[in-house]
Amino acid sequence: MKEVLKLEHIQKYYGNGGNVTKAIQDISFSVQEGEFVGIMGASGSGKTTLLNCISTIDTVSAGHIYLDGTDVTEINEKQIARFRRENLGFVFQDFNLLDTLTISENIALALTINKVPAGEIDGRVREMAGKLNITDILDKYPYQVSGGQKQRCACARAIINNPKLILADEPTGALDSHSSQMLLSTIQSINEMLGATILMVTHDAFSASYANRILFLRDGAIFTEIRKGSDSRRTFFNKILDVLTMMGGGVNDVL
């Protein structure tokens, strides 16, 4: 299987002189094409910083990040925009939909930015909306639909350009349990049916149980990693809880 994402000895420091905060210290891992990887950790563990570095929103202090062979740490400011629109899809906790556009237009926005011919746009939006079961709300504005529907719209926008990597930052953070469950099923089906590669940051064990592999971060470093393999989701969920319990202690408790 092809390696889509590869991180080599990533470090990220904030501040300078004697007042340096190490947000990430020496993280390395890779993600294969079609994988659904979860990143878990407590607040301040460095998971959002890591996601921001991968998504080119933030820069690394040291190390390299390769996306489909391109070193994103070497990309200059002018190339970043193009890199993002051609390679990445984003899903955020607070949806990040534009209140000024309808659901359909919010999805179409990603296509127009990617310079897809005008004649193709409506068709592609409808097709994607059909897959994510949001066809009946296409003409509504974000403030007229539920949180779950908003997040599915955000998912549709994230995947409509077939990005190489979808980055999700606490996608269920603002949803109730039912909507969370529906959204996670949707993300899982995007991964399984469309073969999308997903990197999801979450602190919620239930959300993480939908992933195939989970990286646990603590104090800016990978604490441990577990794979779902042939386990059921319930079993995987229990394993996650076990790791989280162990993380309350030290590395020696896990190994």
Binding site: S55, A81, R82, R85, F90, N96, L98, D99, I113, R157
Partner: peptide, 19 residues
């Protein structure tokens, strides 16, 4: 403030600084 959020969205969607 609302505008700042909207421009942040298109920034992440890949609209260049110049645009």
């Amino acid at each position: 403030d609302q505008n700042r959020k909207n421009y942040a969205v298109i920034d992440r969607l890949g609209v260049s600084g110049r645009r």
